[in-house]
Design a protein around this nucleic acid. Structure first.
Lengths: 249, 249
DNA sequence: ATTTCAATTTTTGGATGCAATTTCTTAATT
DNA sequence: AATTAAGAAATTGCATCCAAAAATTGAAAT
C-alpha cells in the first residue's frame, strides 16, 4: 500500500472537473474511473461521495454520479450563501483583526491594483491575469483568516471550490454561453472589483464592522449581477420546489 | 437486496449519537457497528463518512472514527455560522415572503406563546415542553422556507442537526456540565426567547429586512450567551491554529 | 414503420478477504 | 518500580466478488 488511495482518486476527479475535461452533466462511472486511475472501485466511490458533499458532483442513488450543473437560479442561491458567509467574515475581520492580518490583506489589495493596471494597459498579459486571480483569492482568504472562525472559513473555501468549477477555465461542450463582453466593459468590471475591494479593506482597517459587511455584500452582489449578464439575459424566475409548494397546502 | 443499507446504518448511528447513547468522544469501530446493525462494514464506513461531513463524527485517517466533541470555542464558531445563515434567511424572508408563508410563521409563534405560558404555570408539563421545542423548530424552518434559498436552508438544517446532538437529551459520561439554573432564570430565558421571536416576526411582517436580520442575529447571540453560561464560566480564549499562526510569520 | 415488451448487458450497492498500520500487551532492562 | 522495546492483536483501507436494479438492445406485434 502506497498512501491514501481515495485521496488520489479524489484529486484526480476534482482536477478533471475543474479543468472542464469532465463538463457539467458528464457521467462519472465508477468502473471507468477506477481503471483509468488505476485503483479499485471502492476508493473511487468514496471520492465521488466526498465530491458530492463538496457540491461538485450529483449522486442519485442507483443512477450513478454526474458532474453537477447549475442553472442561473441555483447559481444565485449559491451566491447568496457566499454573500451571507463572506459578509459575516468581513464583519468579524473588522472586529478582531490584528495589525499583521490587516497588512496581509493590504498586500493582496496592493498587488491586485498593480496587476489590474497592467491588464488594462495590455489585455494579453497572461502572467498578470494569473497573478490577479491569485491575489483575488489571497484577499478573500486573508479576510476570513482574520475573522478567526475556522468553520466559516472552511465553508467559504468549499464554496470557492465550486465557483471555480462552474465558471472556471472552460466549458467546452456546455450550453452556448454568451460571448465575452468587449474590452471596455471588462476593464470597467475590473475597476469596479478593485474599488469594491478597497472599500472592504478601508472598512476593516477602521474597524467599522457594519460597513465591512455591507461592502463585502455589495461586492458579491456585483459578482452575481455580472455573472447574470454573461450567463444569459433571462431574468430567471425561480422554480418552486415541491417542498416549498407544500407550504401553500 | 432489501433497500439502501447504508441509509439504515446512517440513521442507526445518528440516532444513537443524538440520544447520547454514543457520547462525545465515543469510539465508533466499524466492525462492532456492522455486527450490531447487521450489515457489512462497507455501508457502515459510508455512513460514518456522511456523519463526518455532517459534523457529527470526527474521522482521523488510520485512527478510526469518534463522536465529535466540541469545546466552547468551537461551539461559538458553530453558532457564528448559524448566526450568519439564519440572519441572512430572516432578511430574505422579510423581502420575499408570501402572505401564506407569513401566516405559517405566525402560527408557530402563536403556538409557542401558548406553550410558554403553560410551562411558566406548570414547570412539569412534559407535553408543553415537547410542543414548545417542536414549534421552535417550525418557527425557524418556516422562516428559511419563506427565504426561498434551498442551499441556505439545507445548510441551516445541517447545523440544527449538530446542535441537537451536542446539547440534546443527555450527556451521561461527558464532563460535568453546570447544573441547570433555577426556575425563575429558566422562565426569564423562555420569555426572552419568545420576545426575540416576536421581534423577528414583526420585522418580517412589515418587510423590514435589516431589522429582521438584526433581530434574528440578536436571538442567536442570546442562545450563544445562554449556552456559555450553562456550559461553564470560562471565557474561553480562542486557540490559534497552526494555519493562523502562519500568517504571523 | 413504430411501439412495446422481454432478455441481455451494464452498473451500482453491498459483502468479504487481505495487507498494512496502529495500538495494546508483555517482557526485559535499567 | 518504571520505562522502553518487541511482538501480538485489532482495526483500518483497499481490492475483489456477488447480487439486485437500471439501461439498452433486439425482436415481435400492431
Amino acid at each position: 500500500m502506497k498512501r491514501v488511495t481515495s485521496e488520489v482518486a479524489y484529486e484526480y476527479i476534482r482536477k478533471r472537473i475543474q479543468t472542464g475535461e469532465y463538463p457539467p452533466g458528464f457521467s462519472l462511472v465508477t468502473e471507468v474511473l477506477s481503471s483509468e486511475i488505476g485503483v479499485s472501485r471502492t476508493p473511487v466511490r468514496e471520492a465521488l461521495h466526498r465530491l458530492a458533499t463538496d457540491g461538485l458532483v450529483e449522486i442519485r442513488p442507483r443512477h450513478g454520479a454526474t458532474v453537477k450543473q447549475m442553472d442561473l437560479a441555483q447559481y444565485r442561491d449559491f451566491c447568496g450563501l457566499r454573500l451571507a458567509l463572506e459578509g459575516y467574515a468581513a464583519m468579524l475581520a473588522a472586529l478582531v483583526h490584528t495589525p499583521l492580518e490587516l497588512r496581509t490583506i493590504k498586500l493582496a489589495l496592493d498587488a491586485m491594483r498593480t496587476h489590474t493596471e497592467r491588464i488594462i494597459v495590455d489585455d494579453q498579459d497572461k502572467v498578470a491575469h494569473e497573478a490577479l486571480m491569485a491575489e483575488d483569492v489571497r484577499f478573500h482568504v486573508s479576510i476570513m483568516s482574520a475573522a478567526k472562525n475556522n468553520l466559516v472559513k472552511s465553508e467559504i473555501l468549499r464554496l470557492h471550490l465550486v465557483n471555480r468549477i462552474l465558471f472556471g477555465p472552460a466549458d467546452p461542450s456546455g450550453p452556448p454561453i454568451k460571448e465575452f463582453a468587449n474590452k471596455a466593459e471588462h476593464d470597467e468590471n475590473r475597476r469596479r472589483v478593485l474599488a469594491n475591494h478597497e472599500e472592504i479593506y478601508d472598512a476593516i482597517a477602521r474597524r467599522d464592522a457594519p460597513a465591512a459587511r455591507e461592502a463585502m455584500e455589495r461586492h458579491i452582489q456585483d459578482i452575481i449581477d455580472h455573472a447574470a449578464l454573461t450567463f444569459g439575459g433571462t431574468p430567471a424566475v425561480r422554480e418552486l420546489t415541491p417542498e416549498e409548494l407544500a407550504y401553500r397546502g
